[in-house]
């Protein structure tokens, strides 16, 4: 079984985010990128499937600073092929990213594509469904467990409010991973060094990007303070009385 895991990188929130001079994008000068947490779970789920049923895990990543470390770490966990997409992918939008992932994935003849269901810079989780569309495969998102047998996958899908569903999908398919069955494992540093020796990262040039279909950002800004706040002063009783009045005015209280 071929399991392909396309991963993307997101700004590491450990550093302060600032807006650049254009006023429509993040300032990338000090930006530090980190693997999208959900994609890290997708890698873990792929490794778990491989450990249970065999197969090959192939990780596909855009070339950004730190990508080699992430790929070798995946190899240390058990990924067999590491593919680095080279080109100007630093600012690629979801549509462009999904298209380059689709091109790379087609060559790898996947039975399963596991991808993070969303990212903190993409809460809509657009990359997975777009990729499924370009690959002509079904998509199931918010997945937190996967079993594969006889060309089918049985997946557990999460719904809001604590609801769970079990669904069956015919392979090949794209699954948006919400959480792996176990948290992503820690691999000791010496194993990553061994993976560096034993594994080769395959570079693939992506050519010109096609970002069509994506949104254009007009303005990006820090949350701005509204001017609606009213400060209530006085002792405890008078503040409470005033609050009750306000709630009644707003029909929060009868």
């Amino acid at each position: 079984m071929n399991i392909v895991v396309p991963i993307k990188f997101v700004p590491d929130l450990v550093e302060e985010m600032t807006i650049d001079e254009s006023g429509a994008a993040l300032d990338r000068t000090w930006l530090r990128l980190i693997i999208n947490e959900f994609d890290d779970h997708a890698i873990e789920q792929a490794i778990l499937l491989k450990e249970r049923g065999g197969g090959q895990v192939m990780v596909v990543a855009p070339e950004v600073e730190g990508v080699d470390d992430v790929l070798y770490t995946a190899a240390a966990k058990g990924a067999g092929r590491l593919i680095k997409l080279t080109g100007d992918l630093g600012n690629a939008n979801n549509h462009a990213l999904a298209r380059v992932f689709a091109t790379a994935a087609k060559d790898l003849q996947p039975d399963l594509v596991l991808i993070g269901v969303q990212a903190h810079d993409d809460l809509d989780g657009a990359v997975g469904p777009l990729l499924a569309e370009y690959l002509g495969m079904p998509y199931l998102g918010y997945v937190s467990a996967v079993e594969v047998s006889d060309g089918k996958a049985t997946v557990r899908k999460e719904y809001p409010g604590g609801l769970m569903a079990e669904m069956e999908v015919t392979l090949p398919a794209v699954l948006g991973i919400q959480a792996a069955e176990h948290p992503p494992r820690y691999v000791v540093t010496s194993k990553i060094y061994q993976a560096m020796e034993a594994t080769t990262i395959e570079a693939q040039a992506v050519g010109e990007l096609d970002p069509s279909g994506g949104l254009t950002v007009d303005r990006m800004f820090q949350p701005e303070a509204a001017e609606r706040a009213t400060m209530i002063e006085g002792d405890l009783t008078s503040i409470a009385t005033k609050l009750v009045e306000i709630f009644k005015e707003l029909s929060v209280l009868q």
Partner: peptide, 28 residues
């Protein structure tokens, strides 16, 4: 135990942090 992936999650986070950020607290 670490090689076998049998370390408590809190400890793994501290290790990951020191590898990535050079400090166990996960700060910049």
């Amino acid at each position: 135990m670490l090689l076998r992936g049998k370390a408590p999650a809190e400890l793994q986070t501290a290790l990951t942090n020191s590898r990535r950020y050079g400090n166990t607290l996960g700060q910049s």
